[in-house]
Design a protein around this nucleic acid. Structure first.
Lengths: 147, 147
DNA sequence: TGCGATTTAATCGTGTGCGATTTATTTTGC
DNA sequence: GCAAAATAAATCGCACACGATTAAATCGCA
Protein backbone atom coordinates (compact mmCIF):
# COMPACT_ATOMS: atom_id res chain seq x y z
CA UNK A 1 0.00 0.00 0.00
CA UNK A 2 1.36 3.40 -0.95
CA UNK A 3 1.71 6.30 1.39
CA UNK A 4 1.71 9.01 -1.24
CA UNK A 5 -1.71 10.50 -1.37
CA UNK A 6 -3.35 13.19 -3.42
CA UNK A 7 -1.64 16.43 -2.44
CA UNK A 8 -4.79 18.47 -2.68
CA UNK A 9 -4.66 21.94 -1.36
CA UNK A 10 -8.13 22.20 0.12
CA UNK A 11 -9.46 20.67 3.29
CA UNK A 12 -12.76 19.46 1.89
CA UNK A 13 -11.01 17.51 -0.85
CA UNK A 14 -8.48 16.12 1.61
CA UNK A 15 -11.14 14.94 4.02
CA UNK A 16 -13.30 13.29 1.36
CA UNK A 17 -10.31 11.51 -0.08
CA UNK A 18 -9.21 10.38 3.35
CA UNK A 19 -12.61 8.81 3.99
CA UNK A 20 -12.62 7.22 0.54
CA UNK A 21 -9.15 5.89 1.20
CA UNK A 22 -9.80 4.68 4.74
CA UNK A 23 -12.85 2.82 3.52
CA UNK A 24 -10.68 1.00 0.99
CA UNK A 25 -8.11 0.18 3.67
CA UNK A 26 -10.81 -1.41 5.83
CA UNK A 27 -12.18 -3.20 2.78
CA UNK A 28 -8.83 -4.84 2.12
CA UNK A 29 -8.41 -5.76 5.78
CA UNK A 30 -11.86 -7.33 5.97
CA UNK A 31 -11.35 -9.12 2.67
CA UNK A 32 -8.46 -11.06 4.13
CA UNK A 33 -10.27 -11.72 7.42
CA UNK A 34 -13.57 -12.77 5.82
CA UNK A 35 -12.09 -14.83 3.01
CA UNK A 36 -11.96 -18.01 5.15
CA UNK A 37 -15.66 -17.64 5.95
CA UNK A 38 -16.59 -17.08 2.33
CA UNK A 39 -18.11 -13.66 3.00
CA UNK A 40 -17.59 -10.18 1.60
CA UNK A 41 -17.86 -7.14 3.88
CA UNK A 42 -21.40 -6.15 2.76
CA UNK A 43 -22.47 -9.78 3.14
CA UNK A 44 -20.91 -9.78 6.62
CA UNK A 45 -22.99 -6.72 7.53
CA UNK A 46 -26.16 -8.55 6.51
CA UNK A 47 -25.13 -11.56 8.58
CA UNK A 48 -24.52 -9.34 11.63
CA UNK A 49 -28.06 -7.99 11.30
CA UNK A 50 -29.51 -11.49 11.00
CA UNK A 51 -27.53 -12.82 13.96
CA UNK A 52 -29.05 -10.01 15.96
CA UNK A 53 -32.56 -10.53 14.62
CA UNK A 54 -33.44 -13.28 12.19
CA UNK A 55 -36.13 -13.18 9.52
CA UNK A 56 -35.73 -9.58 8.41
CA UNK A 57 -37.18 -8.34 5.13
CA UNK A 58 -35.06 -7.04 2.27
CA UNK A 59 -36.27 -3.51 2.93
CA UNK A 60 -35.63 -3.90 6.66
CA UNK A 61 -32.04 -4.84 5.96
CA UNK A 62 -31.85 -2.00 3.45
CA UNK A 63 -33.06 0.53 5.99
CA UNK A 64 -30.40 -0.60 8.44
CA UNK A 65 -27.56 -0.51 5.91
CA UNK A 66 -28.64 2.34 3.66
CA UNK A 67 -28.95 0.05 0.66
CA UNK A 68 -31.80 -0.76 -1.70
CA UNK A 69 -33.19 -3.87 -3.35
CA UNK A 70 -31.10 -3.36 -6.47
CA UNK A 71 -28.02 -4.02 -4.32
CA UNK A 72 -29.51 -6.37 -1.73
CA UNK A 73 -31.47 -8.77 -3.91
CA UNK A 74 -28.43 -10.18 -5.72
CA UNK A 75 -26.32 -10.01 -2.55
CA UNK A 76 -28.84 -12.05 -0.56
CA UNK A 77 -29.18 -14.49 -3.44
CA UNK A 78 -25.44 -15.07 -3.23
CA UNK A 79 -25.77 -15.69 0.52
CA UNK A 80 -28.54 -18.15 -0.30
CA UNK A 81 -26.42 -19.87 -2.95
CA UNK A 82 -23.64 -20.18 -0.37
CA UNK A 83 -26.08 -21.89 1.99
CA UNK A 84 -26.04 -19.23 4.74
CA UNK A 85 -29.64 -17.97 4.44
CA UNK A 86 -33.00 -18.87 2.94
CA UNK A 87 -35.50 -16.52 1.31
CA UNK A 88 -39.27 -16.80 1.64
CA UNK A 89 -42.31 -14.62 1.06
CA UNK A 90 -43.96 -13.13 4.14
CA UNK A 91 -47.34 -14.85 4.67
CA UNK A 92 -48.79 -11.62 6.09
CA UNK A 93 -47.60 -9.49 3.18
CA UNK A 94 -46.66 -11.32 0.03
CA UNK A 95 -44.69 -8.34 -1.24
CA UNK A 96 -42.04 -8.89 1.41
CA UNK A 97 -39.19 -11.37 1.18
CA UNK A 98 -37.96 -12.60 4.55
CA UNK A 99 -34.33 -13.60 4.92
CA UNK A 100 -33.63 -16.33 7.49
CA UNK A 101 -30.43 -17.95 8.69
CA UNK A 102 -29.73 -21.58 7.93
CA UNK A 103 -28.08 -23.69 10.61
CA UNK A 104 -24.77 -23.12 8.87
CA UNK A 105 -25.34 -19.38 8.73
CA UNK A 106 -26.38 -19.24 12.36
CA UNK A 107 -23.37 -21.25 13.49
CA UNK A 108 -21.00 -18.77 11.84
CA UNK A 109 -21.70 -16.25 14.58
CA UNK A 110 -19.30 -18.20 16.78
CA UNK A 111 -16.44 -17.78 14.32
CA UNK A 112 -16.32 -14.00 14.12
CA UNK A 113 -14.85 -13.20 17.52
CA UNK A 114 -11.27 -13.22 16.38
CA UNK A 115 -12.14 -11.10 13.35
CA UNK A 116 -13.42 -8.38 15.66
CA UNK A 117 -10.28 -8.66 17.76
CA UNK A 118 -8.08 -8.36 14.66
CA UNK A 119 -9.90 -5.26 13.48
CA UNK A 120 -9.72 -3.57 16.85
CA UNK A 121 -6.02 -4.35 17.06
CA UNK A 122 -5.47 -3.10 13.50
CA UNK A 123 -6.86 0.32 14.33
CA UNK A 124 -4.08 0.85 16.85
CA UNK A 125 -6.31 3.24 18.76
CA UNK A 126 -7.57 3.39 22.30
CA UNK A 127 -11.22 2.86 23.08
CA UNK A 128 -11.65 6.56 23.77
CA UNK A 129 -10.02 7.53 20.48
CA UNK A 130 -12.29 5.13 18.61
CA UNK A 131 -15.32 6.52 20.40
CA UNK A 132 -14.41 10.11 19.55
CA UNK A 133 -13.75 9.28 15.92
CA UNK A 134 -17.01 7.35 15.70
CA UNK A 135 -18.93 10.26 17.16
CA UNK A 136 -17.36 12.82 14.81
CA UNK A 137 -17.93 10.66 11.75
CA UNK A 138 -21.52 10.13 12.75
CA UNK A 139 -22.02 13.86 12.97
CA UNK A 140 -20.34 14.33 9.59
CA UNK A 141 -22.36 11.58 7.91
CA UNK A 142 -25.64 13.00 9.13
CA UNK A 143 -24.74 16.49 7.91
CA UNK A 144 -23.63 15.23 4.50
CA UNK A 145 -26.63 12.92 4.10
CA UNK A 146 -28.95 15.82 4.89
CA UNK A 147 -27.36 18.07 2.24
CA UNK B 1 -31.74 8.45 3.41
CA UNK B 2 -32.49 6.48 6.54
CA UNK B 3 -31.20 7.27 9.96
CA UNK B 4 -31.53 3.80 11.37
CA UNK B 5 -28.15 2.18 11.29
CA UNK B 6 -26.82 -1.19 12.28
CA UNK B 7 -27.21 -1.44 16.03
CA UNK B 8 -24.03 -3.38 16.52
CA UNK B 9 -22.81 -3.75 20.00
CA UNK B 10 -19.09 -3.52 19.45
CA UNK B 11 -17.05 -0.44 18.78
CA UNK B 12 -14.90 -1.87 16.01
CA UNK B 13 -17.97 -2.89 14.03
CA UNK B 14 -19.64 0.45 14.65
CA UNK B 15 -16.61 2.42 13.49
CA UNK B 16 -16.10 0.37 10.31
CA UNK B 17 -19.73 0.66 9.42
CA UNK B 18 -19.69 4.40 10.08
CA UNK B 19 -16.79 4.84 7.66
CA UNK B 20 -18.49 2.60 5.10
CA UNK B 21 -21.65 4.62 5.50
CA UNK B 22 -20.02 8.05 5.48
CA UNK B 23 -18.20 7.13 2.30
CA UNK B 24 -21.54 6.33 0.68
CA UNK B 25 -23.02 9.61 1.89
CA UNK B 26 -20.16 11.55 0.27
CA UNK B 27 -20.52 9.43 -2.84
CA UNK B 28 -24.16 10.42 -3.20
CA UNK B 29 -23.36 14.08 -2.56
CA UNK B 30 -20.59 14.13 -5.14
CA UNK B 31 -22.73 12.25 -7.63
CA UNK B 32 -25.21 15.11 -7.69
CA UNK B 33 -22.51 17.77 -7.78
CA UNK B 34 -20.41 16.10 -10.48
CA UNK B 35 -23.30 14.99 -12.67
CA UNK B 36 -23.39 18.32 -14.58
CA UNK B 37 -19.69 17.96 -15.39
CA UNK B 38 -20.11 14.38 -16.55
CA UNK B 39 -17.66 13.02 -13.96
CA UNK B 40 -17.84 10.33 -11.28
CA UNK B 41 -15.99 10.80 -7.98
CA UNK B 42 -13.05 8.53 -8.87
CA UNK B 43 -12.80 10.28 -12.23
CA UNK B 44 -12.85 13.63 -10.42
CA UNK B 45 -9.91 12.49 -8.27
CA UNK B 46 -7.92 11.69 -11.41
CA UNK B 47 -8.77 15.10 -12.87
CA UNK B 48 -7.60 16.83 -9.66
CA UNK B 49 -4.26 15.07 -9.96
CA UNK B 50 -3.92 16.07 -13.62
CA UNK B 51 -4.85 19.70 -12.96
CA UNK B 52 -2.04 19.75 -10.45
CA UNK B 53 0.45 17.99 -12.71
CA UNK B 54 -0.38 16.97 -16.24
CA UNK B 55 1.00 13.97 -18.12
CA UNK B 56 1.08 11.44 -15.28
CA UNK B 57 1.41 7.73 -15.94
CA UNK B 58 -1.27 5.19 -15.00
CA UNK B 59 0.93 3.86 -12.23
CA UNK B 60 1.70 7.40 -11.02
CA UNK B 61 -2.01 8.07 -10.69
CA UNK B 62 -2.44 4.68 -9.08
CA UNK B 63 0.22 5.39 -6.47
CA UNK B 64 -1.49 8.65 -5.56
CA UNK B 65 -4.97 7.12 -5.29
CA UNK B 66 -4.17 3.63 -4.06
CA UNK B 67 -5.61 2.04 -7.19
CA UNK B 68 -4.17 -0.27 -9.82
CA UNK B 69 -4.33 -0.60 -13.58
CA UNK B 70 -7.28 -2.99 -13.45
CA UNK B 71 -9.36 -0.10 -12.09
CA UNK B 72 -7.59 2.83 -13.74
CA UNK B 73 -7.24 1.60 -17.31
CA UNK B 74 -10.99 1.45 -18.00
CA UNK B 75 -11.63 4.59 -15.93
CA UNK B 76 -9.10 6.62 -17.93
CA UNK B 77 -10.49 5.21 -21.16
CA UNK B 78 -13.87 6.56 -20.15
CA UNK B 79 -12.28 9.97 -19.49
CA UNK B 80 -10.72 9.73 -22.95
CA UNK B 81 -14.03 8.78 -24.53
CA UNK B 82 -15.60 11.82 -22.84
CA UNK B 83 -12.93 14.04 -24.39
CA UNK B 84 -11.28 15.16 -21.14
CA UNK B 85 -7.89 13.44 -21.54
CA UNK B 86 -5.68 11.76 -24.12
CA UNK B 87 -3.51 8.66 -23.63
CA UNK B 88 -0.08 8.17 -25.21
CA UNK B 89 2.92 5.92 -24.71
CA UNK B 90 5.92 7.48 -23.00
CA UNK B 91 8.71 7.91 -25.61
CA UNK B 92 11.32 7.25 -22.91
CA UNK B 93 9.66 4.08 -21.63
CA UNK B 94 7.16 2.46 -23.93
CA UNK B 95 5.65 0.50 -21.05
CA UNK B 96 4.19 3.67 -19.58
CA UNK B 97 0.96 5.30 -20.69
CA UNK B 98 0.88 9.03 -20.09
CA UNK B 99 -2.46 10.70 -19.42
CA UNK B 100 -2.76 14.32 -20.58
CA UNK B 101 -5.54 16.87 -20.31
CA UNK B 102 -7.32 18.06 -23.41
CA UNK B 103 -8.27 21.73 -23.64
CA UNK B 104 -11.75 20.78 -22.50
CA UNK B 105 -10.38 18.81 -19.58
CA UNK B 106 -8.03 21.58 -18.56
CA UNK B 107 -10.78 24.20 -18.74
CA UNK B 108 -12.93 22.21 -16.32
CA UNK B 109 -10.64 23.23 -13.46
CA UNK B 110 -12.41 26.59 -13.45
CA UNK B 111 -15.81 24.98 -12.86
CA UNK B 112 -15.09 23.10 -9.66
CA UNK B 113 -14.91 26.01 -7.23
CA UNK B 114 -18.57 25.91 -6.30
CA UNK B 115 -18.43 22.12 -5.87
CA UNK B 116 -15.76 22.53 -3.23
CA UNK B 117 -17.82 25.21 -1.54
CA UNK B 118 -20.90 22.95 -1.54
CA UNK B 119 -18.98 20.08 0.01
CA UNK B 120 -17.44 22.24 2.71
CA UNK B 121 -20.86 23.67 3.53
CA UNK B 122 -22.41 20.18 3.53
CA UNK B 123 -20.03 18.98 6.24
CA UNK B 124 -21.43 21.58 8.62
CA UNK B 125 -18.14 21.57 10.51
CA UNK B 126 -15.62 24.24 11.39
CA UNK B 127 -12.20 24.26 9.81
CA UNK B 128 -10.66 23.05 13.05
CA UNK B 129 -13.13 20.17 13.36
CA UNK B 130 -12.40 19.12 9.78
CA UNK B 131 -8.67 19.30 10.44
CA UNK B 132 -8.94 17.13 13.56
CA UNK B 133 -11.11 14.58 11.84
CA UNK B 134 -8.77 14.48 8.88
CA UNK B 135 -5.80 13.94 11.13
CA UNK B 136 -7.47 11.13 13.09
CA UNK B 137 -8.65 9.36 9.96
CA UNK B 138 -5.19 9.60 8.49
CA UNK B 139 -3.76 7.94 11.56
CA UNK B 140 -6.43 5.25 11.42
CA UNK B 141 -5.94 4.58 7.71
CA UNK B 142 -2.19 4.20 8.12
CA UNK B 143 -2.62 1.78 11.00
CA UNK B 144 -5.21 -0.30 9.15
CA UNK B 145 -3.24 -0.31 5.89
CA UNK B 146 -0.16 -1.52 7.78
CA UNK B 147 -2.06 -4.42 9.36
C1' DT C 1 25.99 -9.30 -25.10
C1' DG C 2 22.19 -11.84 -23.78
C1' DC C 3 18.83 -13.84 -20.89
C1' DG C 4 16.11 -14.09 -16.78
C1' DA C 5 13.76 -10.95 -13.46
C1' DT C 6 11.14 -6.89 -12.94
C1' DT C 7 8.00 -3.32 -14.23
C1' DT C 8 3.86 -1.45 -16.61
C1' DA C 9 -0.65 -1.84 -18.68
C1' DA C 10 -4.20 -4.39 -20.12
C1' DT C 11 -7.63 -8.09 -19.67
C1' DC C 12 -10.97 -11.23 -17.38
C1' DG C 13 -14.27 -12.60 -13.81
C1' DT C 14 -16.79 -11.54 -9.57
C1' DG C 15 -19.10 -8.49 -6.37
C1' DT C 16 -20.87 -4.35 -4.92
C1' DG C 17 -23.58 0.37 -5.50
C1' DC C 18 -27.07 3.03 -7.70
C1' DG C 19 -30.43 5.31 -11.19
C1' DA C 20 -34.30 3.89 -13.70
C1' DT C 21 -37.84 0.84 -14.75
C1' DT C 22 -41.05 -3.22 -14.08
C1' DT C 23 -44.10 -6.44 -11.69
C1' DA C 24 -46.79 -7.99 -7.96
C1' DT C 25 -49.19 -6.90 -3.84
C1' DT C 26 -51.38 -4.06 -0.52
C1' DT C 27 -53.46 0.18 0.99
C1' DT C 28 -56.21 4.27 0.07
C1' DG C 29 -59.94 7.15 -1.07
C1' DC C 30 -64.27 7.65 -2.80
C1' DG D 1 -66.23 -2.62 -3.61
C1' DC D 2 -63.09 -0.96 -6.71
C1' DA D 3 -59.86 1.91 -9.20
C1' DA D 4 -55.78 4.73 -8.10
C1' DA D 5 -51.81 5.37 -5.29
C1' DA D 6 -48.26 3.45 -2.65
C1' DT D 7 -45.06 -0.15 -1.41
C1' DA D 8 -41.69 -4.21 -1.95
C1' DA D 9 -38.68 -6.83 -4.85
C1' DA D 10 -36.66 -7.71 -8.84
C1' DT D 11 -34.34 -6.45 -13.15
C1' DC D 12 -31.25 -3.87 -16.29
C1' DG D 13 -27.29 -1.05 -17.39
C1' DC D 14 -23.20 1.33 -15.99
C1' DA D 15 -19.13 2.29 -13.13
C1' DC D 16 -16.00 1.20 -9.74
C1' DA D 17 -12.71 -2.17 -6.99
C1' DC D 18 -9.76 -6.03 -6.84
C1' DG D 19 -7.56 -10.86 -7.42
C1' DA D 20 -5.37 -13.28 -10.98
C1' DT D 21 -3.26 -13.59 -15.29
C1' DT D 22 -1.00 -12.03 -19.65
C1' DA D 23 1.92 -9.40 -22.86
C1' DA D 24 5.31 -6.14 -23.79
C1' DA D 25 9.19 -3.33 -22.55
C1' DT D 26 13.06 -2.51 -19.66
C1' DC D 27 16.58 -3.63 -16.33
C1' DG D 28 20.27 -6.21 -14.12
C1' DC D 29 23.88 -8.90 -14.00
C1' DA D 30 26.86 -12.58 -15.25
Amino acid sequence: MTDTHAPTSALDQMLCFEIYSTEHAFGRLYKDLLQPLGLTYPQFLVMILLWEQDGRSISGIGAALGLESNTLTPLVKRLEAAGFVTRSRDKQDERRVLVSLTETGDAMRHQVGHIRACVTRATGMTEQELLDLFSNLRKLRKAVAAA
